[in-house]
Amino acid sequence: MKKSKYHMQRPQIRLAILFLIPWITGLILFSLYPIVSTIYYSFTEYNLMKPPVVTGLKNYMDIFQDKNFYQSVYNSLYFVVVGVTLELALSIFSAILLNAKVKGRGIFRTMFYLPSIVSPVANAIIWMWMLNPQYGLVNSFLKALGIPQPLWLSSAQWSKPAAILMALWAVGNTIIVYLAGIGDIPTEYYEAIELDGGGPIAKFRYITWPMLSNVTFFQLINGIIVGFATFTQSYMVAAIEPKGNGLLGGAKNSLLFYAVNIYNEGFRYLKFGYASALAVIMLLGMILITVILFVTSKKWVYYGGGGRDE
């Protein structure tokens, strides 16, 4: 039964193989080698120049004793859970607004997208300036409203919200993908809701949200991966406030994100074996999260083509 099903699809398989040739080449060249070597190094003591010395599970045992590991896991989870939720909410809301047929829509789209054109380095710099406790725009606004003004990046308590703000500002790509997705929703669906007397909330709940679930699914997985790889903010804060002799963790290590910790262990302390083990744990954790999302996606992700993730 199954065999004949694929027999029917032989032309499709042939085209798939043809189309996948570049990807397989890329996989072998740019992905497989780094992944395999990282896994190997994770079982060794390795500092780039000398041949790696196999130490078995030592790196992994050490990781679970390392308070920087726990600190960085906490920081990254905070950043990803709060950040990705806010990113998705802000971008879906923005996309709906930008899809409204009003005058000046192109200008609004450009305004919403502008921050995403700014390089991540410049983004961090602009927000460090915006959030400057003394001369920053944000605090002068809060002061005018009589709200207490946090120290943002200089304080352990507020540095992560500040980093999330930086990420939220550059959410333009997510908005665009949602916008393209909204463009694919047939207008008749909305008309049907209108006929039933439904308002904007009903339209969102019964049409927009389920019809965009394929995009949301994509944004969610991508957001988690990008969130765990967050690096630039911490790097720039350290570069511009040269008080820490190169320490990247920010006030009380509150900006020691997972990828930052990997960088520190590798490039600052030259423990590439240990850094590789940290990366492997990250890889395993994210594969786990992705698989869970793929499995549960059957319940909430809707594809117009009827396809399902398995």
Binding site: L27, I221, F228, A229, F231, T290
Partner: peptide
């Protein structure tokens, strides 16, 4: 495909 995005640049 997705897994190849997951390693941070500091190790690759």
């Amino acid at each position: 495909v997705i897994a190849t995005m997951m390693l941070p640049f500091s190790v690759t």
